[in-house]
Amino acid sequence: MTAILLISSALFCAGVYGLLSQRHAVGVLIAIELMINAANLLLVGFGWRTGGAFGQSFALFTMAIAVAEVVVGLALILLMYRSRGDVQVDQATELAQ
């Protein structure tokens, strides 16, 4: 169980690093997916430790929600590209000005 916790937290921190260091919006989406993946691993690990199907059921729900989030996020990125011409997340500062 310690192994699962350590691997999952390391993956999550890799996702946090990517979220803070990526500039392309698709890169930010990849980082978010990596963090969701780490959370899924944690759910499956705890479900494995306690027995029963709740961990895997919740991991399946999380997976479906993550896929839906990617679809809407890509639609937003496409819209941002059409209206601005780039998808750099540090360049979209219209609301801050």
Binding site: S21, Q22, R23, H24, A25, V26, G27, L29, L74, I77, L78, Y81, G85, D86, V87, Q88, D90, Q91
Partner: peptide
């Protein structure tokens, strides 16, 4: 597909 649809900005680089 998302990367391919939005790739005309390579001069800025993908990472900060």
């Amino acid at each position: 597909f998302g990367v391919m649809l939005t790739r005309e900005h390579e001069h800025l680089g993908a990472v900060r």
